[in-house]
């Protein structure tokens, strides 16, 4: 007997009586809290920074102001500072030298500061992880309150096989529980809300 049939047979024998799968409500918030301020509060709590822009035109100025010294800059968007052609790169290992990456976020989740990033929008899956610093542009109308709404909104089958909820820069507290920002992924995260 194959291990698969062996396991399935044992599970069938040993499993308990049928238990009904519950319906999960959306848990909409009843108060009129602003999604933007809730998102901002949580993003800052997880070590990110939120900057609200009046228009997309302000982006280029902001980037050169916040990151005057970064050399290799990649973007999936039309950003002046970008100087690395992502389309010319086939092997993701070649992304190792990137200092700053600027990408579009699909939508944000107010309750935890997470942003959904599907693979079809970032040209290389490893891009938001391998970069030293990360900037995400987010449409301020694209915020949901909680994770139930987030899953209602996202379509994993359109994500090109991978997607990530990203909340803040990478971090660790594995040494004596001291929080250190910048573990293996990006050292910082700035979100521009347009």
């Amino acid at each position: 007997m194959s291990s698969k049939s062996y396991i399935l047979e044992r599970v069938k024998q040993n499993k308990p009586m049928l238990s009904v799968l519950p319906v999960v409500p959306m848990f909409e918030r009843k108060d009129d809290v602003s999604l933007i301020s809730l998102f901002k509060e949580n993003l800052e709590f997880v070590g990110g920074r939120l900057i609200e822009l009046n228009s997309k035109e302000e982006l280029n100025g902001q980037i050169s102001e916040i990151y005057p010294d970064l050399k290799i800059i990649a973007s999936t968007l039309n950003v002046e500072a970008a100087n690395l052609d992502l389309n010319s790169i086939i092997d993701p290992h070649a992304l190792k030298g990137i200092d700053l990456t600027i990408i579009q976020g699909d939508f944000g989740v107010a309750e935890n500061g997470a942003i959904w990033i599907p693979a079809n929008t970032i040209s290389h899956r490893v891009l938001p992880f391998i970069t030293q610093h990360l900037v995400i542009i987010l449409d301020k109308t694209q915020l949901v309150c909680n994770m139930h709404q987030a899953y209602q909104k996202l379509d994993i089958h359109k994500a090109d096989g991978f997607g990530v909820f990203l909340s803040g820069p990478s971090k660790t507290a594995d040494i004596e529980q001291s929080l250190v920002i910048g573990a293996h992924g990006s050292r910082s995260l700035v979100v521009f809300l347009v």
């Binding site: 089958h157 997607g163 909340s167 990478s170």
Partner: peptide, 15 residues
């Protein structure tokens, strides 16, 4: 005590 982990990665298909 974090509202969510930094990365919640959803793998569906190989790269």
């Amino acid at each position: 005590g974090q509202p969510i982990t930094t990365y919640s990665s959803h793998f569906l298909k190989p790269n």
